[in-house]
Amino acid sequence: MNLLRKITAKPWEHAGEMEGLHGEYIAAHSAGRTGLFMFLAVISSMFLLFMISYYTRSRFPDWEILADPGILWLNTGVLVLASVALQMASNAARRKAMVSMRNSLFAGALLTLLFIAGQLVAWNQLVEAGFYAWGNPAIAFFYLFTGLHALHLVGGMWFLGRLGFSMRQENKRERIRHSVTLCATYWHYLLLVWLVLFALLLKT
């Protein structure tokens, strides 16, 4: 409703008035948050379209339902733990507890790597069982979804790694703490995406 009020204002009236207006130059903080949310919207659009394609394609007669590798359940658990670790880091950042934050981040990074490794194991199992991407469309989508999801985690890891390197610099602490909360949001989001994808892969 606030937005509606904003875009129905008559801007030619009340020149000079500043009240309730946007105001000062916003420092990098909230810009980072806005940017992240816009980015999540972009990724959502992408995954949503992939899922629609998946659903549409699955209604064609040549679709074969495949048994998902059991290790995916384990991986899901690992990713949940990674997300928890990131949340702990984020909480620590808010408390300005740098040591606790660093440890949680480290745990989160390790768990994420473990998840990615687990996904690779799942790929390997499929390949060894003779399921290649060109074999049937369900498998192709499986590789595609898991691959893209992992790629986004890798991107997050790169960002996390950069944070790790700059952590020693005292003058950047404020920004680092802020970045950690953004990382946590990103991880939760990717966990959510994974849960939806996993449910979709299980169901069909």
């Binding site: 875009i7 801007p11 500043m18 207006l21 946007h22 916003i26 810009a31 806005t34 816009m38």
Partner: peptide, 18 residues
Amino acid sequence: LNYVTTVLQARCRGMTLM
């Protein structure tokens, strides 16, 4: 992402959306 965030976050004082 830059353009959208800049419009949303970096307008100067007094620059309402309208």
